[in-house]
């Protein structure tokens, strides 16, 4: 669309700028708050320029944690990282394999199998939380990484995404592989997997963030403070009792919690774009 209406354009940019401001300002505040000492913020003046306590705050938060919840945020980040990676990788592994089975193999009740997977879309953790908790507890998996990761791995979204992608791959490619002497596993490894790379990257980003942001599930099954994730950590920083909330530490934790997802998005974005550009006509 070629348009040259300066006023309309100005309004468009203004709207965009306002939108960005609304979204970005709280983030900016959090970053600013993480650079002052507790007293400054408690006084009620929220400064809009960086203070000089950044190194001190990040150092303390990462290594020692807050005054009340004396749990180093570094450890929490490690837990969150294990959980998010485990969920993302696990989901990708399981969903790519189940999609492969559903699309390329003929077995009895294939459709049924697909629909059962599909229906689990309606059953997120929150809905099945009691039975899931019971099973995990009975298996003795409370306060373990396995317990944190496993119940969240099954993914209808991933299976669906891979299935849709596999269906766009021409049958001739499979047939050519067959004639070239590639069996089911070779076809998967040599052709399907390399072609799925961009889909895998997309799914990884989505699922990593999904895993990182989990709140309810880790809250339920972790009792030891050494197993806590950072999302729970933020909540613990903010005391509801009459004790003083160390807002600087809470904000530092929040900023730290934001970093890995942001990094994953930024790093994976290149693969996304590459994938979009490279698609066959």
């Amino acid at each position: 669309m070629v348009e040259n209406r300066p006023f309309a354009q100005f309004m468009a940019y203004l709207t965009l700028a306002l939108g960005i401001l609304v979204v970005a300002f709280p983030v900016y505040l959090a970053v600013m708050a993480s650079t002052f000492d507790t007293a400054t913020i408690i006084n009620g003046n929220m400064p809009l320029v960086p203070g000089d306590q950044a190194a001190e705050n990040y150092n303390r938060t990462l290594l020692y944690g807050g005054m009340h919840a004396r749990q180093p945020v570094g450890g929490m980040m490690f837990n969150s990282m294990i959980m998010a990676l485990g969920i993302a990788i696990g989901k990708i592994l399981i969903s790519i394999l189940s999609a492969y089975a559903v699309v390329y193999f003929k077995f009895p009740f294939r459709k049924t199998a697909f629909w059962i997977i599909f229906i689990t879309l309606m059953l997120p953790v929150e809905v099945r939380i009691y039975p899931t908790y019971k099973i995990v507890a009975d298996l003795g998996l409370l306060d373990t990484y396995t317990g944190l990761i496993m119940p969240l791995i099954a993914s209808a979204t991933g299976t669906l995404l891979f299935r849709q992608f596999f269906m766009t791959i021409p049958d001739e490619l499979l047939e050519a592989s067959k004639i070239d002497g590639a069996g089911a596993f070779r076809f998967f490894k040599d052709t399907l997997l390399p072609l799925s790379m961009t889909t895998i990257a997309a799914l990884f980003v989505i699922q990593f963030i999904y895993g990182w942001n989990q709140y309810l599930w880790p809250l339920l099954i972790t009792t030891k403070s050494s197993m806590q994730t950072i999302v729970i950590g933020i909540k613990m920083m903010i005391t509801t009792t009459d004790a003083l909330t160390e807002w600087n530490v809470a904000m530092t934790t929040a900023v730290l919690a934001m970093l890995p997802p942001v990094l994953v998005v930024i790093l994976m974005q290149r693969l996304f774009v590459k994938g979009l550009v490279e698609t066959e006509k």
Binding site: P170, E172, E175, A176, K178, I179, D180, A182, T191, L195
Partner: peptide, 20 residues
């Protein structure tokens, strides 16, 4: 006999080259 063991080669309409 499996396609791979029939000692044949096939050229497809859409070429079916491995894109990667």
């Amino acid at each position: 006999v499996e396609p791979a063991d029939r000692d044949i080669a096939m050229v497809f309409q859409n070429y079916a080259l491995y894109p990667h």
